[in-house]
Design a protein around this nucleic acid. Structure first.
Length: 411
DNA sequence: ACTCTGGGTCTAGACGTT
DNA sequence: TGACCCAGAGT
DNA sequence: AACGTCC
């Protein structure tokens, strides 16, 4: 998935379109997340050793539930309101790519069999991860878990990333969190990378702003899509000999794919036969997504405590103490953040810049750097107060700020 | 010198205890 | 799967 | 930081 070399291209050519942010600065934000991608990661890594995974009594895998449960709680505790978006039917153009993945999994399955035969532990470890596939069972399990947790899930008619971007465009969420750069190609106004990386280790959250990215590249959105197709996407081959640099140069020089195709040296650059760039372009520009309010209404409800105990403890062998504690965490987090963002809490703590607000929209052309916070103990530690404490709360049970982009942070 | 390619590598969650 | 490094080749 | 556990 993704666009080949786009990350580096943007870092080099549109650095102003991206900025480092603190995990904590997303308090009160609604964030769209590709569920299948998350599940895939969990299956690869959670509780795996060799081919062994976490399972319930029936022997069914529960790694995805463990992963999704703890991650979602972590997000809620940080005041983030996650929306998980599930994949629908992939577009036909993606069939080729999917076939490639399938055959790679087949190869890995063979390799795994060999490794098992010879008892090579490292190889078993390595190859078993490559055989991981997200099934509809996994998806259904997670949808059920989310419903019980009171966290919304959206069913994408096709690509989840496209649906995430659509939610963001419609201002139903503040941003899309993904590791997959084609979120930007789908036009997500704001895109977060490394949101889930534990702040423990290095990498900060990287926030991309598509309008600034385009500004930096000096391209229109349509041109950006053509650039991505040239770099290499899931929907069609790229042209041999054209990488990110050349792609950017060509798009800037000629302005559109049609013009590029008319003007480049066809001897040097072999255009594949039946190259469906127009359809690829359409899939990025007008992907199949749901937009009506009925299906995309996002509600964060109270957890179904009994349901969670039944599902996780009774059916899937979770430790009951862990589950009850987790439920308390959800409820606490919900109370703390139910008022939405308290902007006063997030404004820079120090000097200058009086925060402008009021007025229906305050367009933050340069989103005033949210630098310092009054407190930041989001990680609960063992003996010490494992609670979030927000001093500013005292000034305002009736100071409630509707959670949305109306107030600030518009584009 | 710059760029693309292909081959190889390594890695991928979250939490608590020590 | 991606991200990174490297060697090699083409421009 | 390294390690073991989660189910």
């Amino acid at each position: 998935m993704g666009i080949k070399g786009l990350m580096k291209l943007l870092a080099d050519n549109a650095p102003n379109g991206m900025k480092e942010q603190k995990f904590e600065s997303y308090f009160g934000r609604k964030i769209a997340i590709d569920a299948s991608m998350s599940i895939y990661q969990f299956l690869i890594v959670v509780g795996r050793s060799g081919t062994e995974m976490l399972t319930n009594e029936a022997g069914e895998t529960t790694s995805h539930l463990v992963g999704m449960f703890s991650r979602t709680i972590r997000l809620l505790e940080a005041g983030i309101k996650p929306v998980y978006v599930f994949d629908g039917k992939p577009p036909d153009l993606k069939k080729q790519e999917l076939a490639k993945r399938y055959s790679r999994r087949e190869d890995a399955t063979d390799d795994l069999a060999k490794a098992t035969e010879s008892g090579n532990k490292e190889d078993i470890e390595k190859f078993s991860k490559r055989t991981v596939k997200v099934t509809s069972q996994h998806n259904d399990d997670c949808k059920k878990l989310l419903r019980l947790m009171g966290v919304p899930a959206v069913e994408a008619p096709s690509e989840a990333e496209a649906q995430c971007a659509a939610l963001c465009k419609a201002e139903k969420v503040y941003a899309v969190a993904s590791e997959d750069m084609d979120s930007l190609t789908f036009g997500a106004p704001k895109f977060l990378r490394h949101l889930m990386d534990p702040s423990s280790k290095k990498i900060p959250v990287m926030e991309f702003d598509i309008s600034k990215v385009l500004e930096g590249l000096e391209l229109s959105m349509d041109q950006f899509i053509d650039l991505c197709i040239l770099c290499g996407c899931d929907y069609c081959d790229s042209i041999r000999g054209i990488g990110p640099q050349t792609a950017l140069k060509l798009v800037r020089q000629h302005g559109s794919m049609e013009s590029i195709l008319e003007n480049i040296n066809k001897e040097r650059y072999q255009i594949p036969d039946d190259w469906p760039y127009e359809e690829a372009r359409r899939l990025f520009k007008e992907p199949l997504v749901v937009t009506d309010d009925e299906q995309t209404e996002l509600k964060w409800a109270a957890p179904d405590e009994e349901g969670l105990v039944n599902f996780l403890v009774k059916e899937n062998g979770f430790n009951i103490d862990r589950v009850t504690k987790a439920i308390e965490k959800i409820k606490t987090a919900k109370n703390k953040s139910s008022q939405g963002r308290l902007e006063s809490f997030f404004k820079p703590v120090s000097t200058s810049a009086p925060v402008k607000r009021k007025g229906t929209k305050c367009v933050l052309v340069s989103p005033s750097p949210v630098t310092k916070f009054k407190t930041l103990s989001l990680r609960s530690r063992p003996g010490v107060l494992g609670r979030l404490i927000f001093p500013s709360l005292e000034l305002g049970s009736n100071y409630s700020v509707p959670l949305s982009r109306h107030f600030c942070f518009g584009i």
